[in-house]
Design a protein around this nucleic acid. Structure first.
Lengths: 345, 345
DNA sequence: ATTAGCACTCTCCTTGCCGGAGTGCTAACT
DNA sequence: AGTTAGCACTCCGGCAAGGAGAGTGCTAAT
């Protein structure tokens, strides 16, 4: 049925979707007729519209209103009708500059890009970073953290930094810590965090009895600190842009749900994690996304990689009525930018 | 004039403010008469109300509506009339538990407490952490960060961790890094970040010519990395609670301004930094706070300390119509909790 | 000094009434 | 056949009028 639409019908659909994206109002037959250069009269358009409605691509808010695209309508538009709009030179430059400014650790980079992406798109921008378990370590260090606390700091090659606190290990001298750090670094060389953990446990079995107790205890406590996987991170920028969209600004209830979701990382995670593995951009429209808390929102997201492995995804969250032709290239570019930035790290 | 109010007048004011806090609606003379056990007739109350209006504590939205407290009215209520409401046992326990769960580095602790504070108060909770420049270091470490990058990690005794990236220093071996780290730690011993920086520069003058070039360059690059002060941090939790307040939920424009402010750390900083030094709790009502972007909001905040020095403040942001009797003790308790948590760090 | 009474003022809700936009259907046209 | 003009119909949104309700200010009596 979807493919059984002639060219004229799809052109009408395209115009309706685009007009609706631009105005956020139901669009009528007259408008479309004009837009198509009067080659067809409103009456004809109406007939076509009726067909499209029957096919499930359009809906009427009430009997005598114009048509509004349904989720399926948007889906079809995105999949078959969309004319991508090239990024402006200036936008690309801005994104590059933002990436350049993120010259701190990786989170700084990601935050800058996300922030700009939200500004350019006037939507809320989200970046999720998967748990760095699978990433290759660059170095490890044990540091005093006041009192009887020790901080285990891990740095990944991509520039992600993590720290975990170890409590109640008072009587290690600075020298001992350094020695252990050096040893851990040896173990970590070229390994992922996951592998390091395994390696430590292995080593622990071997060494425990033989060598000095200090080292044994240090290994044990490192293993313990690394035991539970770090949860991964979520960065959200441009929340306020949500209010720019009339469909949300007018409905306090929906607004509340979205803002609450923003505060619950796990929800955002679920929203974006499907985009993570796929290299291509992914657009979820309305009810398609399985997150019950948030019906009628769209997510445009793309994974970014570091070398061969996917480490996270970046995307936009907004109303179904988004300017996909503009927003999709933007997200795509931002994702590829992150990928290249991480490449030479 | 403020002190020239007799007991009865202030009691009326108190009831009006409290009723308004509870209902968010203008309150009439009848209501107050009833609330005071009919000891005074509505007509009398009306006279008193007229006095209070003249004194600037009340206002009428329109001729025949009830009265609404003005900013000055709230101010007077907070300063003279407020009956603090003791924290429930359960609330204290919850806060303690939250603090206990924040067993990671300091930011985790702060975030947990803030989050719970926002839940208990149904307001947006904010914590600002001043730049750690003045805090005493616990340890320092230089770590490889992939490519030709080095990460300078600093840990404060309170548990705050910072990292700064140093780019383009490729040819230092792991051993050298460790050696330099050890040396930096010696210099840092018991010093604040500010002092360390000075010390490094001093040392740099001395050592540069004499000792090995590696050490000299390492010192120089550390000094450079520490040159610009880290900006301090802001944690916001419970943004969605803002929507719980009818005064904001109904006015999209105001909502937008607040959410935008939440995205601009500097604004939040300005909002809370006056609370930082003062040990007592600080309540800013409406236009009192000098942040032009946000008229008609209240900030209830208190500094928290680490040892003798103020390191930040925690507070709530909400409408002027807040339940101060409940919220003030809450913030106070949260602040003191943070102070004690940092004490034994 | 307090209070009852009363006229008055505003808001808010309901109701009813247009005008405009847009549709569906039918009949005529190409 | 497909297309179009014409027309009756539906529904929304805005506007005005009217009435109920809440609350006030003032005056006169206690």
């Amino acid at each position: 049925m979807a493919s059984g639409m002639d060219d004229r019908t799809t052109r009408v659909l395209r115009h309706i979707v685009e007009d609706y994206i631009a105005t956020a109002e139901p669009v009528g037959s007259r408008t479309i007729s004009k837009k198509m250069g009067q080659t067809l009269s409103p009456a004809t358009i109406r007939n076509i519209m009726a067909d499209l409605e029957e096919a499930g691509f359009l809906a009427q808010p009430h009997t005598s209103a114009g048509r509004v695209p349904t989720g399926a309508g948007f889906r079809y538009y995105i999949d078959h009708l969309l004319a991508r709009q090239a990024l402006a030179r200036g936008e690309m430059d801005q994104l590059h500059r933002a990436a350049g400014e993120g010259n701190g650790p990786a989170d700084e980079l990601v935050r800058q890009v996300s922030r700009l992406l939200s500004n350019l798109s006037r939507q809320a921008s989200v970046v999720v970073v998967s748990s760095p378990e699978q990433q290759v370590l660059s170095s490890v260090s044990l540091m005093r953290a006041g009192g009887d606390r020790i901080l285990l700091v891990t740095v990944m090659v991509g520039g992600w930094v993590q720290h975990r606190l170890i409590e109640g290990e008072p009587d290690l001298t600075g020298d001992e810590l350094e020695k252990i750090s050096a040893y851990l670094n040896e173990l970590a060389e070229g390994r992922t965090l996951l592998q390091l953990r395994a390696r430590i446990l292995e080593e622990l079995g071997k060494e425990k009895a033989r060598y000095d107790r200090v080292m044994g205890r240090a290994l044990a406590m490192s293993a313990h600190a690394l035991a539970d996987a770090a949860p991964g991170e979520v960065f959200i920028e441009g929340r306020a842009n949500i209010l720019e969209q009339p469909e949300f600004a007018e409905d306090v209830h929906r607004l509340k749900r979205i803002l609450r979701a923003f505060e619950e990382k796990s929800v955002i995670f679920r929203l974006l994690d499907r985009a993570m593995e796929s290299r291509a951009i992914r657009v979820s429209v309305g009810l398609e996304n399985t997150v019950e808390e948030l019906p009628d929102i769209s997510v445009v997201a793309s994974g970014y990689r570091q070398g061969a492995s996917s480490v996270g995804s970046i995307g936009l969250i907004g109303p179904v009525r988004m300017d996909y032709s503009r927003v999709i290239p933007l997200v795509e570019y931002a994702a590829s930018l992150l990928t290249t930035m991480f490449e030479d790290r």
